[in-house]
Design a protein around this nucleic acid. Structure first.
Length: 152
DNA sequence: GCCAACGTTGGC
DNA sequence: GCCAACGTTGGC
């Protein structure tokens, strides 16, 4: 059992959007960074804990608790010529981009970036480091416990 | 809109 | 394999 923080732009897929989806589940499409992809492809397991994070918005921060809900499989947007995530270099017989499904367990209050920065136990979190851009980052068990306790 | 950080591309 | 140029991310 591992823990992850996954960023989504709410203008694309917000926590409320996921709450409204069948089974509160969304396929985590659009990741086009190899490091983030490798976390989904190689390191995630069904049932892993996920912090649902809103980025590139007026109030960035954690807005929900979710879980990994599938094994990795090819992101369909890579083959969709109309999608902004279309990748001409990816072939169906050798897909470049694998992703997982994510199921929202519960929407929480906003635990905003400024508040996250005030919590000493979270000082090492990847998402709080300067220059961090990675859209999926590992979260330690201690960080997970701290954050979920604040959101309980 | 700005800009720091950093991943990717492509010439050599 | 190096590295400059370029594009993107994402907070402010």
């Amino acid at each position: 059992m591992r823990y992850w923080l996954m960023k989504s732009e709410p203008s694309d897929v917000s926590v409320d959007d996921v709450a409204a989806m069948p089974k509160k589940t969304v396929n985590w499409y659009g990741v086009r960074n190899f490091q983030a992809r490798n976390f989904m492809k190689d390191e995630m397991s069904v049932g892993d804990g996920v912090l649902f994070y809103h980025s590139s918005c007026p109030e960035p921060g954690v807005v929900g608790i979710a879980e990994v809900a599938s094994a990795p499989y090819p992101d369909p947007t890579q083959f969709d010529r109309k999608s902004p995530y279309y990748d001409a270099k990816s072939k169906p017989e050798a897909p470049r981009w694998q992703h997982v499904d994510v199921r929202l367990v519960k929407k929480t209050r906003l635990l905003g970036l400024p508040e996250l920065r005030t919590i000493p136990e979270l000082a090492e979190m990847r998402v709080l480091q300067k220059g961090n851009r990675l859209s999926i980052t590992p979260v330690s068990a201690a960080e997970w416990r701290k954050i979920t306790s604040l959101l309980a």
